[in-house]
Nucleic acid binder design. Sequence first.
DNA 1: TGCCCGATGTTGACCGCATGAACATTCCGG
DNA 2: CCGGAATGTTCATGCGGTCAACATCGGGCA
Lengths: 215, 215
Amino acid sequence: MAAISGGKTYHHGDLRNALICAAVDLATEGGPERVVLREAARRVGVSPTAAYRHFDGRGELLRTVKTHAQRALADSMERAAAREPGADDPALAAERRLAALCRGYVGFAVAQPGLYRAAFCVVRQAGPDESAPECRMPEPEIRAFTLFGEALDALARAGAPRRDVRPSAGAAAWSAVHGLSLLLLDGPLRRLPAQRRNAVVETTLAMVVTGARIP
Amino acid sequence: MAAISGGKTYHHGDLRNALICAAVDLATEGGPERVVLREAARRVGVSPTAAYRHFDGRGELLRTVKTHAQRALADSMERAAAREPGADDPALAAERRLAALCRGYVGFAVAQPGLYRAAFCVVRQAGPDESAPECRMPEPEIRAFTLFGEALDALARAGAPRRDVRPSAGAAAWSAVHGLSLLLLDGPLRRLPAQRRNAVVETTLAMVVTGARIP
DNA sequence: TGCCCGATGTTGACCGCATGAACATTCCGG
DNA sequence: CCGGAATGTTCATGCGGTCAACATCGGGCA
């Protein structure tokens, strides 16, 4: 993520991207609260206010980082699922895939705490229009949720959960891994030794999978 | 929480408490990030630096609020459980109590988003001693966890989960309600209409309970 | 009783950050 | 080749955290 630039000219040439990279680095190092406009500008070697030519302000910069982090999270999930060996029994395969997605999720959170927190941080909106229309589904751009949903669908096709529970089931699975991740990162489970932490993760996974299996 | 004071003297008389109240109000209104030393002092009608006679700085003030919020959360859980009617079947009673605790948990989060977030916010430590000794259990002062643990114990005594899963099972249940709360508050489930939100909550509860029931 | 010290507040100052206004430098299309 | 649009810069304002020096109060001891 650390970009290098050669000659110094008055015009940077790709400041927007450079700032994004710097901001992502900052978030990676210390989470969303460390995404500071001035610091990003400093790292890129540009004056603080230059950023305003490319972003509405700190808010928009952070939102960009957030999007990046959400993508990275989903990627981690897909990679984990791809590593998972298949199975003849479709139900078993579906369960394995669900578990792998969960592991990819928590794995990303633990490996990239700063980015993970950035992926879910709250960013002040531009307009004070708090009254966005209600939304049936979670913010659509969250691919992580889509992945859980699809996995649960597959499980359903293999005969497991009641049809009418979906898509709530996706949200339930998501809740479990999200809560687990946060408790492990900055929450009260932060100091668990690795082995005990693993136990907690596996227990939670079991809860998710059996919760999806049993009507 | 809003305190009134009578005559104005140079010495306030109970500044520490007054500041805490103001800070809790702030957190209630806008979460931990709105707990601002200067603002708390302003509300109490005192100069900003006066707070330093009673707190190490913003950090300690916030930590105090956090503790308060954790207590309030646990109280909400216990109240919800107390409202729950008993049952003849001990296993059923145990399941009901667990569900009630969860509802009390999520209910608090939804009713007091600011306080809830404050209860789990990260506060910079005084010394940079990142290397606290590893801890087998979650931070002991978190009564919420204790409550989940006890409820699962009761369920275990009624014959449900495998012995060896505890206390991981407590963490799993906690993860589910914690993640659910956060997704509902500022997360991607924030805009769900009330009815759909209820469905998600109930589905998650079912996951927690069946997850605890099935070995 | 009266005075002095420590506890408690206050002022003033410094630093970092977000953000806006006015000014400077490039670059590119006509 | 030139002028305006892009893109950066400097200057200034306001907020928040925190420190040092100074002011005030109140209670205990001589």
